[in-house]
């Protein structure tokens, strides 16, 4: 369980990233955060694995306040929380398998990981993860030989290999075309259901949010302005969250193509 209690974040230059956030995310939920760019979605998500550090309030992950974590338990937290990025963040010159095995870094000692001494279990776990996103045949290809959608699937495999309890996805489909976007979201949803991994996804496409989310949280200017089950959400709700009428580019489309 993740619980935000009066969380606020002020950047060193004075901008307020988060304002007085109170949110509770339950086990196994598939939560989509929506909002315009700059609304604080990314800051919200990155607070959970402390890639950014909120400046006030408390943030509980499994009952422990992670805001006063330091290097040791921070690594443990990050091992428990997997993350998927908009730009896939793969090491382009390394092969797919090595990229996926990097998910085990938090579980592996420094020396063993540097000498590439992974256990057989770790290797089969990595291979199994690649299989689950149907890209195992690219095992020994270099990451930069893959298309965007394939790279994002590899990064999902990397997170799976990490065996996380939570998955954070920061705009995972923003750089992909509509059919590939749906494919990636489908994998995320499937993993959420099969492995009971709590998943939090940032999106700015309304139709995708409504299609995949169990619950939608709307943000504007660093504040939570909507929080409710996806079934209660209508286009009107989005107009309130965005503070303007819905436009063509707020929709990803292409749902039937995939």
């Amino acid at each position: 369980m993740i619980e935000f209690k009066d969380v606020g974040l002020v950047y060193p230059n004075g901008t307020e990233g988060l304002k007085n956030i109170n949110v509770k995310i339950n086990e196994g939920e598939f939560v989509v955060i929506v909002g315009l760019s700059g609304a604080g979605k990314s800051t919200f998500i990155r607070s959970i694995n402390r890639l950014v550090t909120p400046t006030s309030g408390s943030l509980l992950v499994d009952g422990e306040d992670i805001l006063n974590y330091h290097s040791g338990n921070l690594r443990k937290l990050r091992t428990k929380v997997g993350m998927i990025f908009q730009n896939y963040n793969l090491v382009k010159r390394s092969n797919v398998f090595k990229n996926v095995l990097a998910g085990r870094l938090g579980h592996t000692g420094t020396l063993r990981s540097i000498l590439n001494l992974y256990s057989k279990e770790d290797k089969s776990l990595a291979y199994e993860s690649l299989n689950r996103v149907n890209i195992a045949e690219k095992l020994y290809n270099r990451a930069d030989e893959l298309s965007g959608g394939q790279q994002q699937r590899v990064s999902i495999a990397r997170v799976l290999t990490q065996k996380p309890k939570y998955i954070l996805a920061d705009e995972p489909v923003a750089s992909l075309d509509p059919p590939t976007s749906h494919q990636v979201m489908t994998y995320l949803k499937k993993i959420n259901k099969e492995d009971k991994i709590t998943t939090i996804v940032n999106l700015h496409f309304i139709d995708m949010a409504m299609e995949y989310a169990d619950r939608i949280i709307g943000m504007r200017a660093g504040e939570v302005v909507f929080d409710g089950p996806a079934s209660e959400v209508t286009e009107k709700t989005f107009e309130e969250i965005y503070g303007r009428s819905i436009r063509e580019d707020d929709l990803r489309g292409g749902a039937d193509e995939s």
Partner: peptide
Amino acid sequence: MENLQLPPKPE
């Protein structure tokens, strides 16, 4: 899954 064999590296 424990006994899973990796495919051989491409020659």
